[in-house]
Write a protein that binds this DNA or RNA. Sequence first.
RNA 1: GCGGGCGUGGCGAAACCGGUAGACGCAACGGACUUAAAAUCCGUCGGGCUUAUGCCCUUGGGGGUUCAAGUCCCCCCGCCCGCACCA
Length: 647
Amino acid sequence: MPRTCSKGSTRLDQWPEKVKLMQENWIGKSKGLNLTFNLAGTGDGIDVFTTRPDTLFGASFVAIAADHPLAREMASNAPELQRFIEQCKKGGTTAAEIETAEKIGFNTGLSVEHPLDPSWHLPVWVANFVLMDYGTGAVFGCPAHDQRDLDFARKYNLPVTRVVAEGDNEDSDFEGDVAYTGPGRIVNSHWMNGLSVDEAKADVIAKAEAEGWGEGQTQYRLRDWGVSRQRYWGTPIPIIHCDFCGVLPVPRSQLPVTLPEDVSFDVPGNPLDRHPTWKNVPCPNCKEPARRETDTLDTFADSSWYFIRFASQPDDKPFDADEVKAWLPVGQYIGGIEHAILHLLYARFWTRALQKVGKLDFAEPFAALFTQGMVTHVTYFDKAGDGKITWYNPEEVMSDGTSAQVKGSEKRIQIGRIEKMSKSKKNVVDPDPMFDQYGADAVRWFMLSDSPPERDLEWSESGIEGTWRFVNRIWRLFDGVAQGVSTALDTNGALDKLLHRAIAGMASDIEALHFNKAVARTHELVNAIEKAAPSASRDAAIRTLPRLISPMLPHLAEEGWAALGGEGLVSSQPWPDHDPALLVDDEVTIAVQVNGKLRDTLTVPKDLDKAGLEALALASDKIIRTLDGATPKKVIVVPGRLVNIVA
RNA sequence: GCGGGCGUGGCGAAACCGGUAGACGCAACGGACUUAAAAUCCGUCGGGCUUAUGCCCUUGGGGGUUCAAGUCCCCCCGCCCGCACCA
């Protein structure tokens, strides 16, 4: 998975950089050298992974994890080491604890030969900061150029030798407590001296491979994805366990395996595991009593390909390749940032795997990704004497913003952080009363109106009243035209322009998911229509309105469309056309600045040239007054924008 | 600690490639209509000075580049997210 998903993420040019970066960090690809340090006097060795083979001459110790096989072996007849290992295991696992945890080590007394100079011996330590589940569970320490190694070396007085020059500083004695991890020339390293860090890395890897004591390797940090769960809610894994025949797949004719519905959750644990009939089945091979697998698949397994099944649902197979080809990949995926890593990475992997086995003809499931913000709300809680926290729903709380109490009681409670709405913190708001009071259109419009969708939104109902008023204003426009027989034949050029601008602008706003801007444009148009005297232009604008508001106020749009005599449904109408000629003004307002400060504005023909603009600007009363006789040193003219006079 | 992002009126926010900061909305305030209220309509609305024309300040803070900076560069502060002893 990491190999295939780290490739190709650069091609996802319509994905947020943030998400791609999070996935890359999660995959944690790093290139380096796997090498063996031979234990002095024995044939055994310790395998070590490093991304800094260039610093090999700066090595001063080798450290292994507390649960490294060698450490455990030695501990069996060394009680002191045994105690040290116990101590390491007790260390906390929270972020803060790891951050502040002191590096501790135990000198095993063993030593290893340096691969580039077998006469040079390095001590072998067991250290709490070496992780067994990454790389080989063993590292070599180069304290001058790695902060962890330096912390460790200073504590146990191990040698610290500089092997990368820091500017002009080539001293082999490294001073201070801050490791140097930047670029530089290699020094104090025999044949490598003078090379750059990158050159030296390549050099050492080549030498190790030629001499057989190591090889270049790419490591991934990504943990394995354990896809099975001991729970009911998930897809059954079609496997049967037989005491005689072992682990067998459920025969094809018995697929799919479906979950039993007569389960109870009265007892903790997986109900499948204690289901009497579902669990016990004959072995498909020897017919003796056997048992179904009672783990189910992680729900991420389903979410990794649901979009494929969504596009094609034949009865006899997971999906039809041709049908899928017609619909996928998904053009625009919209989801929360909380799925940035797991779901979106697994779905990418699933798709790649299906492509690899020839079932799909594309590698990436989602061409474009948009991560919308989360809806947040302040939390309310109360902490009991035993530290137990009780959360309160905002609806049962009275708060003035600085203090809070439970409605209908004297109970004072605390105001917590503003957090993503969640059932566990009870800071969810039920929108149903709003729907009942204002209708679905007003609530939808309200939610689209102010905040851009990529941003987190702190839920507040202030503003819904205004939305409700606006919905009513639009309805009155429809009603007015529908009731009255319009005889006005005049046109209104300004209103025509505004309408066509709204048509074009709202289309691009909506395409870009800038719904709040489309809302603002609708307000501008409606404000102007309301103020305009009756005219053919005004009627046309009102008759266009249902199509414009249909994506965001669908019910009102349909009512308006019908009231104005439209055929069928407005939702099946095409977006109105706009006249590009009406998008350009023949007059523009330009700014006139003196020394970059606005002093006047002028309304001029759109294509007035630089000389004309300059002349007009210099003739302005306000400019003459501001200049107060001074001679302009320089005049910058940006046609259609501004004139800036430098005095 | 590492990586990424954000910071604009009382509030949610606009501002295209560096070119009139605050569009649009909410709240607030003043007014009209009304016996009254609701609804509706009109107006004001970043801060300061000023009789006014107008002037000064203002996009977290400080510096810089530029004719011109919310926008570009450097430093700092604050908040948010992800990762976290990954060799």
